[in-house]
Design a binder for these strands. Structure first.
Lengths: 190, 190
DNA sequence: TCGTGCTATGCAACTCGTTGCATAGCAAGT
DNA sequence: ACTTGCTATGCAACGAGTTGCATAGCACGA
């Protein structure tokens, strides 16, 4: 399971509370991994018991205190060993594909709206990713000399993951257009 | 949850036993939904209790008997109502993306082999899908007059789902090449 | 002041999904 | 004769993930 490892990566990029992690999982990390706050709190507790992360209470003004977590040595080691462990290429699960094949036994035209909704959702995500790329990954016109190599790697790797999200959304959009064209052939004409 | 519905679709396409379903989930259905035989047996039992499917014992020669399931009226209705229910665009989960971002805090070059493995796995799947398309969806040179419309829809919808799988694999392959190029920049040079 | 909404954390109950194991008959190779 | 492997079904235990609910402080507007 990778939720623990996703949390480790996120905390290495920047320490934070369970709540903040949940926010991040709705944004940038959520592009390739989702989690609810309950999952995160539960896993954080286990990780703290296992010595993977450490927490300190941070008082805040105008807000409840928070527990800020950061990665401990054991956590870093756990991440490293996971990184070196091969994993199987993911098994895909697309409800929508099940629906499309199922439509043959119902009314294919009735799916058109649903597919259009998905198409728009993916269009929105694509726009969102592209805006993020524009904001975070356009060169500020000639960085002088060599910046820190470590930061460079972090940025570059975040960027290539984002490009993956962009490629995924573009693929989905053009496939959904293909699906719509196919469904249209079984509409009024039949 | 869509496992029940995926099973309904598969049984509508062709009745079969739990074992046969498990096979299909390793093949064509597995392109967009995975399930182990234990899950399938458990869910089939529940579906039979709920009256969604019916079974009959089929004796076989040279093999253990099997229970062949087929879809009952209630199951057809359940599928139909699910098809009309909107679903949320899927939440993605890519272990590999987590690893790639995590590599910034370890040795990026160590991931190269892993990414190459995935690249090859996706290449294999693509070849497999293309062979299936060639086999099942190339026109046998002019079908005379109009074939059955219902069968037409089933085939066309299966085909568009397969095209989705093909597009997905192509996208992954080109993205993984991008990832490899990016990782290479943090290799020997650094 | 009352409701709405955000930050912040958590429990309990449930369903979903995976892993390991067990059984049993038959086929085919060594 | 022995092992390996395929069809065929299933249990038990566990871990992952979801949903509903609870608490609590503070901000902000009607």
């Amino acid at each position: 399971m990778a939720l623990e490892h996703a949390i480790l990566v996120s905390l290495l990029e920047k320490p934070g509370s369970g709540y903040e992690l949940a926010r991040r999982f709705e944004r940038s990390i959520g592009y390739f991994w989702t989690a609810t706050h309950q999952q995160i709190y539960r896993v954080l507790k286990r990780m703290e018991n296992d010595g993977w992360v450490e927490s300190r209470d941070v008082p805040q003004q105008g807000r409840p205190d928070k527990k800020e977590y950061s990665v401990a040595d054991l956590g870093r080691a756990a991440l490293s060993s996971w990184l070196h462990d091969p994993i199987e290429p993911e098994s895909v699960r697309h409800d929508l594909a099940v629906k499309i094949r199922g439509a043959a036994f119902d009314d294919p035209a009735a799916l058109i709206r649903e597919v259009e909704r998905h198409r728009h959702a993916h269009g929105d995500r694509l726009a969102h990713y592209l805006a993020g790329e524009e904001r975070d990954f356009t060169e500020p016109e000639a960085g002088p000399a060599a910046p820190e190599a470590a930061l460079d790697a972090e940025r570059e790797l975040q960027h290539v993951v984002l490009r993956g999200g962009i490629a995924y959304e573009r693929m989905m959009i053009s496939w959904l257009d293909d699906v719509l064209a196919t469904l249209a052939r079984f509409g009024p004409g039949h």
